[in-house]
Design a protein around this nucleic acid. Structure first.
Lengths: 360, 360
DNA sequence: ACGGTCTGCGCAATCGGTTGCGTTGTACAC
DNA sequence: GTGTACAACGCAACCGATTGCGCAGACCGT
């Protein structure tokens, strides 16, 4: 029977000791019994478990992790939970972690270095067994100094610029093959007759530079030698999609490759306001493969990024590393193009035309 | 100077004791100094802090919370991090919490009772100072038995069906005024000449029933006495938006009020595939006000739900309750309609027409 | 010189589990 | 009868902080 004490006092939490007492065994035996330690007889184990259930015993994670020096907790640092891509990553990460018995502390860093450092500090205080950093601005070096590098993994669903000049290994990295994705996008466009192709950037962020470069290279590789147009934001401040659309509409290319789907969709909206039709007047391809790209009007052709896979891969890789005492692995995620309605086949000879490919 | 010990052994964590030793004070003084206890002289405080910084001391949250019986941690249970609405709520919740010095453990319950119970168990083990439950299937009663009711708040950005037959107070609740929202939507439609108005449901979920009822009542209140059409999903299984669109197109109403924006947008896409134009052939209004509703084609008229405000309200209310030892308050969030392009003014006398409003 | 009041700091208990090691009890062999 | 092996369990230390209480020394007044 449960002793209630009569009064409605703030019911004292039931401790392992209470369970032990109720089962008439020592604390240590109770602890082992609940952990299914083979040294404890089956009968005793059952007795203890029954008592625990009866008393509604809930172990104290803090006390346990203090002793065992493991928290079964992971830290997840990302820029923003509202973003579809990060939401996808976070969702998959959390699921995978939970299935493996870990729970996760999520902190949004908002692409702000100070906040990101605070986040890592929080993880350190909580002694998380591992940390995943998704698309953040903090440098790997900086991050390594704040949390155990062996317990650290970077996830870059949108770029991997941080990892070029930083030596062979910084920790685990789950990165995307932006070059491959850009190639697929460009191939699709060129094969369908598009020639005047522009890249529309997402600002001054490093992630943008990577995709811009990837697209530029893919264009060069296909012999598109017309100076690639690139609409970057002004160094200061941000252009609204409306402003950007106006600039673009003033000298309309045949196709636009956008930094990401969010930009592509916003741009489609803004262009529509200007009377520019997609894909009739201009083709558009995005990056990321967010859910809404599949039901927009027109549906968006996009380079799909396996955000969910990246999230779960990060979690499982991290956990494996923690348990084995190794360093999280590094994996490169392939990107595939999903062709929809925002691009079409241009009514023009698909074979490379002499006048455009110059001396090809 | 930092003693490194030479070898690359798994650098022992630095403890408060180390800081104390380095500052030549006792542990207790070190602890108090770091907490800026007035009893410790300023000079000593500075000395200790310097030592802590020098040694890169990071306090152990588990040890601390074990002692102080407070974890400065909140639990957040929601169905899915991928959902725009929940993402918004989670984002705001996390921000607010972090600003107040709390960190948050997020668990996705996926509208699955078992998983939700596991989540609450996790929160209980971690002794979270408070728990917020967003749009979940677990009953308030059930939840109250698993976590301290005084530390519990429900957030219902999409419905509040759980709270009708459950007594006056179940814990804190942040709920939405769906009735008001539905009224605004219906008023807008009716004022613009729409008469044959249907509600398109989101399945058998309780949340759907609430909005369906709210819309039905709003229609009745405006004297729209034609039997309100309502496209519910079949009891078993789910209809695809395509199926749903086909059914709707077969006998097209003048306007559709959808359970949420996601459904509205999917429906617009499916209807377009069937050659039905929005808003020319049918008006559409959604619920939630997700970001993408603002840039869809056509832009979606929708009942805006202040998800972010709800998230931060939940966090601050919860924290306040925890600190004051009171019960989290209950608030009702007003919903406002944002009119965009998916509805228009019908070329029909706006005044109620005799033949439709029957004996009005 | 001596009692009283502060100021600044340290001792040791405490939070709630886990675990190395030792102890008890029984069975079995010799 | 005694030694040995093994199964089942208990004692007490430990994890790393926080904090109630007490104590030493400085300072002051008389």
């Amino acid at each position: 029977m449960i002793e209630n004490g009569g009064a409605a006092e703030p019911r004292r939490r039931v401790l392992l000791t209470d369970v032990a007492k109720s089962a008439k065994v020592s604390d240590s035996t109770a602890s082992r019994a609940l952990a299914d330690d083979q040294r404890i007889s089956l009968a005793t184990r059952r007795k203890v478990k029954a008592a625990a259930a009866e008393l509604h015993y809930v172990p104290n994670a803090a006390a346990r992790s203090l002793r065992v020096r493991r928290t079964k907790t992971l830290g997840l640092l990302l820029p923003d939970l509202r973003d579809p891509v990060h939401g996808q990553v976070a969702s998959a990460f959390e699921q995978e972690a939970r299935q493996r018995g870990y729970c996760v502390i999520i902190v949004a860093g908002e692409k702000d270095l100070a906040r990101e450092r605070v986040a890592l500090r929080i993880f350190a205080e909580h002694r998380t067994d591992g940390v995943a950093i998704v698309s953040c601005v903090i440098s790997p070096k900086d991050a390594r100094e704040r949390v155990d590098p062996d317990r650290l993994i970077f996830v870059q669903p949108d770029h991997r610029s941080l990892f070029r000049s930083d030596g062979p290994r910084v920790a685990g990295v789950i990165q995307t093959d932006d070059a491959g994705g850009a190639r697929a996008a460009v191939d699709h466009l060129v094969d369908n007759g598009y020639r005047r192709i522009a890249y529309v950037g997402g600002g001054a962020r490093a992630s943008n530079a990577v995709r811009a470069e990837a697209v530029a290279k893919a264009l060069r590789d296909r012999g598109i030698r017309t100076a690639p147009i690139s609409y970057a934001n002004s160094a200061e401040g941000w252009r609204t999609p409306g402003d950007l659309a106006a600039v673009i509409a003033a000298d309309l290319p045949e196709a636009l490759v956008c930094y990401d789907d969010k930009l592509a969709l916003a741009l489609m909206d803004a262009l529509r306001a200007l009377g520019v039709r997609v894909p009739d007047d201009v083709g558009i391809v995005g990056f990321d493969g967010i859910p809404f790209a599949g039901i927009s009007n027109p549906r968006l052709t996009t380079v799909n990024v396996p955000s969910a896979e990246m999230g779960s891969a990060a979690a499982s890789s991290l956990i494996r590393a923690v348990q084995l005492g190794t360093v999280p692995e590094t994996v490169l995620m392939p990107l595939d193009l999903v062709v929809r309605e925002s691009t079409r086949t241009l009514p023009r000879p698909a074979a490379p035309t002499k006048e455009r490919t110059a001396r090809a």
